[in-house]
Design a protein around this nucleic acid. Sequence first.
DNA 1: CTGAAAGCGCTTACAG
DNA 2: CTGAAAGCGCTTACAG
Lengths: 334, 334
Amino acid sequence: MKKITMLDVAVKANVSKSTVSQYINKRYDYMGEETKKRIEAAIKNLGYQPNYVARSLKQKKTSTIGVIVANILHTFSTQVIRAIEDFCHEHNFHVIVCNADDDPEKERKYIEMLRAKQVDGLIVFPTGENLDLYDQMIEEKYPLVFVDRMIDHLPVRCILLDNEKASSQAVSHLVKSGYKKIGIITTTLERKITPRMERISGYKKAIQEQGLALNEEYMKSVEVTEMKRAIKEMLSLPEPPDALLAGNDLSLMEVLAVVKEENINVPEDLAVIGIDEVSFASLFNPAITTIEQPAFKMGTKAAELLLELTKNPEKVAEKTVYRYEPTLHSRESS
Amino acid sequence: MKKITMLDVAVKANVSKSTVSQYINKRYDYMGEETKKRIEAAIKNLGYQPNYVARSLKQKKTSTIGVIVANILHTFSTQVIRAIEDFCHEHNFHVIVCNADDDPEKERKYIEMLRAKQVDGLIVFPTGENLDLYDQMIEEKYPLVFVDRMIDHLPVRCILLDNEKASSQAVSHLVKSGYKKIGIITTTLERKITPRMERISGYKKAIQEQGLALNEEYMKSVEVTEMKRAIKEMLSLPEPPDALLAGNDLSLMEVLAVVKEENINVPEDLAVIGIDEVSFASLFNPAITTIEQPAFKMGTKAAELLLELTKNPEKVAEKTVYRYEPTLHSRESS
DNA sequence: CTGAAAGCGCTTACAG
DNA sequence: CTGAAAGCGCTTACAG
């Protein structure tokens, strides 16, 4: 079963490859009606499908972009990905998604593989460790957009939640409901991941603005595997918190696991609130108060910016931070 | 910023393109040590990255496969995708994922686009409507694997849950716990989607095997948007069911939404059990009994089969159904 | 042990 | 209005 090529079509339609190519690319400015029809018939007849690989090689563009998420386990990542895909498919771009799994080495490998595949641009949730690669892309004016995290000083467009605001919304909501001993639990800060840092700093500022005392024992940032232990520790303090802010969806799951294991009454004994919307928030008993990121909007914007850069690669690299507003969904858990 | 090509490396290392190519492809059977070193140095020095598009064109393979899922909103789909990606990345294959969104037209577009991009094979959760395309791929001996759904008579390898067994596990578990009026709710059967059909037929068989009466009013298959209404209807029957089997994760969410809205006591007033594992199952109050698909194993198998076909395209097309065992997680809701 | 040459399937100035 | 020719960046038999 030999593959049908453009040449086969040309022969069948009694024209040259060039003319078939013009037809395929809808450049029929001067094409005779007769010719068009013959080509169309030949294509249908032979079941010809153009080979995008050959086209890409010649045109030096693939109409494909790459997305590297730091960790696909977050609902936020999957929502952003879906938004990117929707936008790209509408604009006839393909998307290759890779999951760096919070591992800078994997991130490096994926950046290199995707670039070898000549993708036209990259949307990255950067681990932050591959500065040489980021620098290189910037220097080459390679289309690049960061999501969720930024790297200081790097002239790259970044899509971020207003993380400090998310924390402060949580804190003021809790204070309004009468809670005064507010704890926060996030995943580890070891690698200075933007959202975690900002959510912590936003929490600190908000606590102080509310005239509450900052208590170091109410702030834990640990690996997910350590999280249940850390939460239990916090809850067995002589003066335990009466409210807990989970820094993201995975942290919230750990909090709820402890709540279940220890048979804690929510919100009577402990108010719970999570940053990131989760599928079961409103179904839960009690329904969980969450702070939602506009993931779909953020993903769409990332794709939009990237495709724009793709079309216009000479655009100056510049650090532009696009901040998005969180939304509080007040439910029963706080 | 001109792209560095193999020719640049060759010139710098004082060898021909051919030799550089040999080096890149690690075919140094007869290559002099000196030459190797010079090439290596030139590559490092210039920061050369091979262009996979050119290689793909020449080799007529892209080391990329496509995955088209029927509906990415199912947790099962995302887990299968992750397994496929893991397996493929291990074997140096790339994966392009598309979401057909239960729309046969989108499926058609994606199959055509992916084939134009010359992906080496396709894993499809088929909508079932594009028989001409499926046929064409089979005839061309194009590597193809179906997941979750099969199409009668089509000689394609299929990865499926033992759906009938899943239903019968649910029914016998419920019967063992003393429930006798067992309902089932699934998404619409309009397009004869395999898992829905089989879960229904498995349910019917199990009910009869258990010596219970089959009650048509206890079986509803409707669009997700209609589901809450349908559930409420079933629950307001003169003799309502005392247990409800949700046919998949999305259906389970609808059941739980009704439970919450109507303040139903689970499992006292209504036992609940769902096919598909969900992230919150064990955190919920009450914890939800689920029947899990071995999604990771299934995805891995799909990838394994496909890569095998890719290596060995002359393998006869044959209908082989790989069935996987469901696992019951007995929790508090039933 | 290494190189010259052909070719993968397209696109694109340019000629006529 | 259409075609001949060059070329995108590789790989691969084959020659030497």
